[in-house]
Amino acid sequence: MSANSAESARLLEVVLVKAGRTKIRYPAELLHDDGTRVTVRAPWAGASVRDFGFVRFEPGDVFTEHYWRDRWYAVKEVRDAAGVLKGHYCDVTRPAAVLGEELVVEDLDLDLWRSADGAAVLRLDEDEFAASGIETADPRAAAAALDALDRLEAMAREGDFEELLSWPPRSAAG
């Protein structure tokens, strides 16, 4: 699919699955789909403010979300209502799938936060990942998830996030 004005007006329903159940679903504007990376934009889908301590997601925030069909993560650029970058929230996931009008992603618990200035890079929810049982139930997926978190952290610390999210892509890092 090529980027054009008709495509940018298309909506997809983002479906986040966790532990076999739909955790959340929300409409998002399709910005680009090149067959490998899918980029969508959506307002904060939460019903209220979510304060993580290191960032607050709140009504008016806009997420530009990047999903890959061949990578075990998604990267979400988070901006406030005025367009100021808050940072990047990264989910470790199985590779994304577009099924009709749905973008389906399976969350594997591990997350990473990178502040707007790159000064804070935080690995999140490693305890949830360990408690999920995936390391026993699906060791291959667990290894891919841990590798994805390590790669995301390295890119976040080395300043490669801008290159990862640039369009057209300049890097084949995966």
Rank of each mutant, 00 (worst) to 15 (best):
W72F: 12
P59G: 11
R151F: 01
R140D: 15
A120W: 08
A81G: 10
T22N: 12
D117F: 09
P139C: 13
A6E: 11
M1V: 02
E77F: 00
G174C: 14
G100Y: 04
L12G: 01
T136E: 14
S2T: 12
V40L: 03
R151S: 05
D125E: 04
V84P: 02
I134N: 04
L11E: 13
V14F: 02
H88A: 01
E158C: 14
V49R: 15
A82G: 12
D91T: 02
A148K: 10
D91P: 06
A97I: 07
A131H: 13
D111K: 06
V105Y: 02
V14R: 15
Y89F: 06
R114C: 04
F161I: 12
E7T: 10
A137Y: 11
C90D: 01
D70L: 07
A28S: 11
A154Y: 11
L164T: 01
V55A: 08
V104S: 02
P43T: 11
Y26A: 11
G83Q: 11
G133W: 11
P169M: 09
H32D: 09
A3T: 10
D138N: 14
R94F: 01
D160G: 08
D34P: 07
Y89R: 07
P168Y: 10
E163F: 01
D147R: 15
L11F: 08
V78R: 05
H32W: 07
L112Y: 02
G174F: 04
D34N: 13
P169Q: 14
W68E: 02
A96P: 07
P27E: 13
G60K: 14
Y73E: 03
A19Y: 06
S8K: 15
D109G: 00
G20E: 12
P168L: 08
D34L: 08
R10I: 00
R10K: 12
L149E: 04
G83D: 08
P43S: 12
E29A: 11
R79V: 03
T64Q: 12
E65R: 14
S132N: 12
T64P: 09
A74R: 06
A131E: 13
R170G: 15
L124H: 03
A120G: 08
V38D: 00
L112N: 05
A97M: 09
L103C: 03
D109K: 09
L16I: 11
V92F: 00
G100Q: 07
R151T: 05
D51G: 02
V55K: 12
R94C: 04
E135I: 02
L85H: 10
V121L: 10
R79G: 01
L31Y: 01
D34C: 08
A3G: 09
W167A: 07
D80R: 07
S48Y: 06
D127I: 01
P95A: 03
R69T: 06
E163G: 11
A145M: 04
E65Y: 00
Y26Q: 13
K18S: 10
E13R: 15
G20A: 11
A144C: 12
V55F: 04
E77Y: 00
V98H: 07
